[in-house]
Design a protein around this nucleic acid. Structure first.
Lengths: 239, 239
DNA sequence: CGCGCTCTAAAAGTCAGACATTTTGACTCG
DNA sequence: CGAGTCAAAATGTCTGACTTTTAGAGCGCG
């Protein structure tokens, strides 16, 4: 299977500038309502032309992070206007270090929509999706960490898409951000992870057997455990 | 209260081009995987320079709609990569005409997260938010259609923000898109709308009284009724 | 005949410098 | 002291050129 094409052609200078600026904005380098450096200053700083830098800024405007006003400058929008569900914004926040507040908010949202999504998947999934999820549970138990993590991500993505709801599927980046926190556990090897395979298996089996209620409860159980692990992880990483 | 600043400085040519292109892409004017016209062709068509047009295209790339590849052109990404929860993308879809499938998907997602959000709001809302919601229910009953609609939108926004969860608040555009369908009813005056005030009042009161379970059920009831109305509306608009 | 290499051209990617527009804030005049 | 005016500073835009990437045609070799 071909690997999913990256969202932005990451190698291109203007994309790098957008990513760099985006990360710094969500990290709070500039206060909300204040101006970031002017376009000429930024273009000099990044070593590229003003038109190219403007492309980067316009992307961030499109994600609700910035707004450009003539004569004043480019200012950071109030946080409630940020497209917090944008995959890039979510990833930038996750990479910038997840604090407890953010982990709780992320898991709260995930806890709201993913159990019902599991129930929907149990009712609507195609035979291919059902077996793909069972296969991924096996790979989840692999000794190869990278393969195990990839299977975990794929499992949840397949389930969301199996609901047949295009908007539910678009919530996937939220799960990805949660997993980013959880993976700090497995990377650090500080907590036992043996529960992952049986808990995912319970979900996969319930979906394969069209048992909506069981799928919902199994997902709920996984999320409770994952939240606890994620909170432990960030306590260890940044006490 | 100052009106919320528009997401994109709508008057500027490059923003207009982005909006125009965005609408046409989500409307399916170009097939997924196919190339849209080249930058020079589009810049001629819109009557602006290539750098400006590129800004518009880059915004759409940032929303997952497009991907630019040298020598080939700018191609429409597979729909599962679209940032369907992006406020602009959602609005473009809603404006392009809501079919039954989309209305059902939108309400399905809303039905999953908004009742739990109401429960959370009942537990966590500030006194100001609780009274603001009660006030908006009164305005909802106003004879002035514009004011009534504005109150409806504000009611749901206030509730989501009252949950204290930044990511839940970012789901607001989903509700807005649902309301866009519902407003086709009130605009056309084809269905009685007297149920709106009491149903919203039940939610507002439950939240004001810290009754989470009641708030959740009242919201569930409103959504069931709204879905039915929305489906009726689109049947009438496009049979 | 077919496989693979090279080369070309078409598209996006980038650049430089200039001009236009908008709007804040200071300045001047009544 | 207030109101109108003006200049400057920032974004918005344009022109036209060059560079880079890469699909696809064309060529040559096994």
């Amino acid at each position: 299977m071909a690997p999913r094409m990256p969202r932005s052609s990451s190698a291109k200078p203007h994309s790098l500038a957008a990513i760099n600026l985006g990360r710094r904005i969500v990290a709070g380098e500039w206060a909300v309502g204040s101006t970031i450096p002017t376009e000429v200053e930024l273009s000099r700083a990044f070593g590229l032309s003003r038109p190219s830098l403007r492309e980067a800024i316009k992307v961030l405007c499109g994600k609700g992070l910035l707004t450009a006003v003539p004569r004043v400058g480019t200012i950071v929008r109030p946080k409630q206007d940020w497209n917090r569900l944008d995959p890039d914004v979510l990833a930038w926040q996750a990479q910038g270090g997840l604090n407890e507040r953010m982990v709780r908010d992320l898991f709260e949202l995930r806890g709201i929509f993913e159990p019902p999504a599991a129930a929907l998947a149990a009712l609507k999934a195609t035979p291919e999706a059902r077996s793909a999820m069972l296969d991924d549970v096996i790979l989840l138990g692999s000794a190869d960490k990278a393969q195990s993590i990839a299977a975990d991500i794929r499992f949840h993505r397949t389930m969301l898409e199996a609901t047949g709801n295009q908007f539910l599927a678009a919530m996937f980046p939220v799960i990805e951000a949660c997993l980013a926190a959880s993976f700090q556990v497995s990377r650090a090897d500080v907590l036992p992870q043996e529960h992952l395979v049986p808990m995912h298996m319970a979900i996969a089996r319930a979906i394969a057997d069209t048992k909506a209620e069981a799928a919902q409860q199994a997902m709920q159980a996984l999320l409770s455990r994952s939240l606890a692990d994620a909170l432990t992880a960030i306590q260890i990483v940044q006490p």
